[in-house]
Design a protein around this nucleic acid. Structure first.
Length: 109
DNA sequence: CCATTGACGAAGA
DNA sequence: TTCTTCGCCAATG
């Protein structure tokens, strides 16, 4: 179950790759981006088998915090390297760093 | 086909 | 605001 491969996952990956540097996206947003075909939990499943080239570190939960998954330290380090600030409680201000995607053209990249 | 699990979210207490 | 409960879809055994 390390590397799930499915059509649904590819969509999640494609959206994650569109997240610009210095911005973050939540699981719930990704769920919306794929038009509800994937629940937040499904997104988590997709990222569990995410390819190494995927910027999965830009995906955080609705609270703006990093969910435990293996090495949250690396994720935080990468985000900080992109200019994302963390609060004292380890949370990100989604109002400032949350990515607002445009689902104009491609809902299915 | 059924039960369980998971890097989650929203609503209720 | 924090904790609990429920629900969601996909994958695994």
């Amino acid at each position: 179950m390390k590397q799930p491969r499915g059509a649904v996952f590819e969509r999640v990956y494609a959206w994650v790759r569109r997240v610009p540097r210095g911005k973050v996206v939540t699981y719930g947003q990704l769920s919306e981006l794929v038009d509800g075909r994937v629940t937040p939990v499904g997104v988590g499943w997709a990222l569990a088998g995410a390819p190494p080239d995927l910027p999965w570190h830009r995906v955080v939960n609705a609270r703006g915090a990093i969910s435990p998954h293996g090495e949250p330290e690396m994720q935080r380090a990468r985000l900080e390297a992109e200019g994302v600030r963390f609060g004292a409680d380890g949370r990100i201000d989604l109002q400032a760093y949350g990515w607002r995607p445009r689902r104009r053209q491609a809902n299915r990249p």
